[in-house]
Design a protein around this nucleic acid. Structure first.
Lengths: 212, 212
DNA sequence: ACTATAGCACAGCAATGCTATATAATCGGG
DNA sequence: CCCGATTATATAGCATTGCTGTGCTATAGT
């Protein structure tokens, strides 16, 4: 018995906000709706306020991350695949630096808290396959190995994305993952080549992905 | 031929800002100077604006981190010491969560850019001692090992501090560092005990350090 | 002591996020 | 097919934000 929200408006605003983040325009209540035809009130009906916009933006970040992880094609080599997933994680952070920063902002609250777990799940499954394939010891917990891989990727790329480390430092990711996987039971020589196979997918420093 | 700035005012404001950060009061131009007797203009004469306050706050964060790293007593076991330094880094991040977040905020610019390098230098020196002591291979670059240790500590604690991982996840730090040090040449059994020696300094989850 | 310089206090500016109120649109029931 | 209740939307206004302009005052150097 009343008007219904138009979901197109919501996605329009989220995408515009993500775009403004990328172009480094300050995202304010008024600048966000400027030129879209919708009024400032729309922000409150769809997001409850600017906080809601940021929350939706974090969600969008995880959605894009999930989409990127989904593009990683699985091979017969689980160690390569796990590495490739970490590389995809790092690549996503580099391609959407500002959105990536927002994702882990002050208050980490998402609309769908499951989203973060879902992305981790990609890593967990690869770790599981690695254990089943005999690359990792039987007493290795796939979740723990996934978390450790995540921490390595996140630690490196966040230090690079926020400034303190130069971009070439990302190269340390391969030896670090190799060390981790070997400690999980993988054989030294095979691990190195697997990780290198997965790691070489990383976008080279000079090559920025087509801006917008 | 004119008035001079009183350095006490500057430190007063920085410490007050750090305190407000800790108590989660919003830091605004007016709230910062409220009750201090100084007027809003002081913020501009001493910091050039609120941006300058945040920059000084980042600097303060690195100063406190450096002070904490300096308290780590060096032993005859460089691997233990390197681990203890990472533990100190993690502990500092947990004790000053909000300041830690500010340190790696949007634009990573410090008043003294050297400060970040200085903290890393602690790790580098421990890695050097480890190599001289024969714990790490001769071809290991102490700087690289330090960066990798940093990335592990930072990755873990930042994922914990910003929300996605529960605090107990920090326990993964020990096996990760062990894997890293073994890959750098340390012997398996000795490494494990060294890392455990250094790691047990970490503040247990339940025990919050005396607030204020 | 005099003066030029720089710190300081106050007031006011545009811009911010948010809310109150009034208007208009639309879905459900008859 | 229309009507009314309900909800989105538009506009205006609020307190607060960071910042700047204007004098005033304190002080360091000659």
């Amino acid at each position: 018995m009343a008007r219904t929200k138009d979901p197109a408006v919501r996605t329009l605003l989220v995408e515009r906000a993500a775009h403004m983040l990328r172009t480094r325009e300050p995202i304010t209540l008024r600048s966000l709706v400027a030129g879209t035809g919708v009024s400032t009130m729309a922000v409150y009906t769809y997001f409850g306020g600017m906080d809601g916009v940021w929350k939706a933006l974090r969600q969008e970040g995880f959605t894009r991350l999930g989409a990127r992880l989904a593009t990683v094609t699985m091979s017969t080599d689980p160690v390569r695949d796990l590495t490739a997933l970490v590389v995809a994680y790092v690549g996503n952070a580099l391609d959407h630096t500002d959105l990536y920063r927002v994702m882990f902002d002050a208050n980490f609250d998402l609309e769908d808290a499951q989203a973060a777990d879902d992305t981790l799940e990609y890593l967990v499954r690869a770790a599981e396959r690695g254990r089943r394939a005999g690359r990792f010891r039987a007493d290795i917990d796939p979740l723990e190995l996934a978390i450790q891989s995540w921490a390595i990727g996140h630690g490196l790329v966040s230090l690079v994305a926020t400034g303190p480390l130069p971009r070439r430092t990302l190269g340390h990711g391969a030896p670090m993952l190799t060390a981790l996987f070997i400690s999980a039971g993988d054989r030294s020589d095979g691990c190195r080549t697997s990780v290198e196979q997965g790691w070489k997918q990383l976008t080279p420093p000079g090559e920025e992905p087509g801006a917008e």
